[in-house]
């Protein structure tokens, strides 16, 4: 007959007893009754000379140490990978932002150039259309100020139909007035 209790294995820390008789965790754990304190009751009657057994110890099955180590390694690996990725993203973002910043600088410079060009063109338009320049240019082309002119005045109300005769009469009057004025030019 094999006493299962004799096969107890020491725990991982070398102790063989159990603390307070608590139940161990896990499906493989076995519950043992607390060791009896009276040697007479526990000693077999057929082997009187046999020395008394040491008090039975309560043992637990120790958890697998390799199991936690793998998780930690996994977590560390994930952390490192995440850090690397983050660093990469940050660096990449910085690079992109730097590029964008220089691009922004370039666009700003273009904007300034365009604004300057616009202002210069506007100034040029103003210069070309200034009365003094137009007069000078006209004179260069051989034009002279008009010395003879007349006036055409409307004779009717605004809603009156334009009468050909009235227009002709007005023009005739104006022409006569102009001729008279020419004759009497001071």
């Amino acid at each position: 007959m094999t006493d299962l209790r004799a096969e107890r294995r020491p725990t991982i820390d070398g102790r063989t007893g159990v603390r307070g008789g608590a139940m161990t965790r896990g499906a493989a754990a076995l519950a043992f009754a607390p060791a009896p304190t009276d040697p007479a009751q526990s000693a077999p009657a057929t082997f009187p000379d046999r020395p008394a057994r040491p008090p039975r110890r309560h043992l637990d099955v120790a958890p697998n140490p390799h199991r936690g180590s793998r998780l930690a390694r996994f977590l560390v690996a994930v952390g490192i990978a995440a850090t690397v990725v983050c660093l990469f993203v940050i660096v990449a973002a910085n690079v992109v932002m730097a590029q964008q910043s220089y691009e922004l600088d370039r666009v700003r410079a273009q904007q300034q150039d365009a604004q300057r060009s616009n202002a210069e063109l506007r100034s040029e338009v103003a210069r070309l259309s200034s009365p003094s320049r137009i007069v000078t240019e006209a004179e260069r082309l051989g034009m002279i100020p008009a010395t003879d002119f007349g006036f055409v005045q409307s004779t009717g109300a605004h809603d009156a139909p334009v009468n050909g005769d009235a227009v002709a009469e007005t023009l005739r009057d104006t022409a006569e007035a102009t001729r008279a004025a020419d004759d009497s030019t001071p």
Binding site: F151, Q153, D173, A177, A180, A181, S184, T185, P186
Partner: peptide
């Protein structure tokens, strides 16, 4: 500005022109 009515403006213009001619002003 619309020219002055023909009944008065030429009168001043004519009179002024005559006087200017009389005085020998080129104007």
């Amino acid at each position: 500005v619309v020219p002055t009515a023909a009944s008065t403006a030429p009168a001043q213009w004519d009179a002024a022109a005559a006087i200017a001619r009389e005085r020998g002003n080129d104007c």
